[in-house]
Simulated assay, not measured.
Amino acid sequence: MIDVRGLRKEYDGFVAVADLSFSLGEGEILGIVGPNGAGKTTTLKMIATLIKPTAGRISIAGLDPMREEIEVKRRIGFLPEESPLYEQMTVKDYLIFFAELYGLDTGEALVKIEELLDMLSLSADGKRIGDLSKGMRRKVAIIRSLINDPDLLIYDEPTSGLDPMTSQQIIEFVLQLKEEKKTVIFSAHNLHQVERICDRVMIMKNGRVVASGTIGEIRDRWGKEGYILEFRSENDPPLSSLWKENGYYRVRCNGSDELGEVTRLIIEDGGEVTRITPLTSTLEEIFLRVMDEYPIHEEIKENQAFAGNH
């Protein structure tokens, strides 16, 4: 569906995004995560044809956005993090307006709008957009991004600032779009949501991709091995990081070597190991580890100095 190769964006010598490459197929979801200033929004705007890359290539459904911009825009839906709406318009009038911009007739647009309102559990009821809550306005913006039935959806922080219930509704809706074979790229700070719904994840830092792949691939590369060892003992075990629950002792072991050593100590002390549970690193744990461990490229250091002087 989308193929990106060597994407780069510079602003007066400052490299905002460098050497970004990835591919995504029909019906796949890619989550882009990183700290503020990592290049996430710049990346999304380049893919959405809102800003032109300094170098590199983007192909969307076999189309080149540089040469076939209008056709590409017909195939994408974009949701910025901050999405101002026409607050004096009613919800339906607003959505009909955008539907007509895409060439839909009013009758066709109304059918599509009613379908999307129902899917997102949003009741319009003649309400003006300015009278809606933040969560409801966000849903209107999402419907606007879908009014042209795009193949590729590009969402920048779709659940930012929303209450947990609305946020959950939007995440469930994104999963529903996947079932409809829509390809979705979105940025997010909520790593739990990313871990739950994404087929692939890209972690960015200082304009570069520092880790990417499926959750399993990233976990294999960056995850930290760990275990919870459960045991019984009549003695007070000579172990740190120990707690007792439901009559059993439990201790966390970081890695197989520590697991073996703790097991040996328990048995020598007359204890009995009853269960060993492997621990899986969360995406949040991995993200923090990547941020801490990945070295800053010399070019990026120069960029930071440039930014600090301007």
Rank of each mutant, 00 (worst) to 15 (best):
T54R: 03
L132A: 05
R128H: 05
I154A: 01
V184I: 13
T183Y: 05
R219H: 08
Y11V: 12
K40R: 02
L7Q: 02
D163Q: 13
A307N: 07
I129S: 02
K134S: 11
A16M: 08
P237S: 05
G213C: 03
T90S: 10
I296R: 11
L44Q: 03
T263H: 11
I51W: 10
I170R: 01
S133V: 15
L85H: 12
M89R: 09
A55H: 04
L259E: 11
I218T: 07
V210H: 09
I129V: 14
E172Q: 07
V194W: 06
L152P: 00
G255T: 03
E230W: 15
V4F: 00
D163C: 11
L122K: 05
R196C: 06
R67Y: 02
A18F: 15
S21T: 09
R219W: 13
E114V: 15
I154Y: 03
L242H: 11
D156H: 02
Y227Q: 02
S187F: 02
V209R: 06
E82W: 14
L110A: 07
S187R: 00
L110G: 02
M1E: 15
L265P: 07
R221G: 00
E172S: 06
A61R: 01
A55V: 03
R196F: 11
V273T: 15
V91K: 07
W243H: 08
Q168N: 06
E81W: 04
L7Y: 05
W243V: 08
I70A: 01
S281M: 06
F231P: 00
H297K: 13
F14T: 06
I300G: 00
L85M: 12
G27M: 10
A109V: 12
K45F: 07
L177Q: 09
I185W: 03
G56P: 04
F78L: 09
G130S: 05
D292G: 08
T263E: 11
G308W: 11
D292Y: 14
V209N: 07
L50C: 01
R67F: 02
L63S: 00
S83N: 02
N148V: 12
I296K: 06
A99C: 04
V290I: 14
F306I: 09
P65K: 01
T43C: 00
M119N: 06
T277S: 10
G34S: 04
E195G: 04
G37Y: 08
I96F: 10
A38I: 05
R232P: 01
K181T: 15
G226N: 05
E10F: 10
A18M: 10
E217A: 09
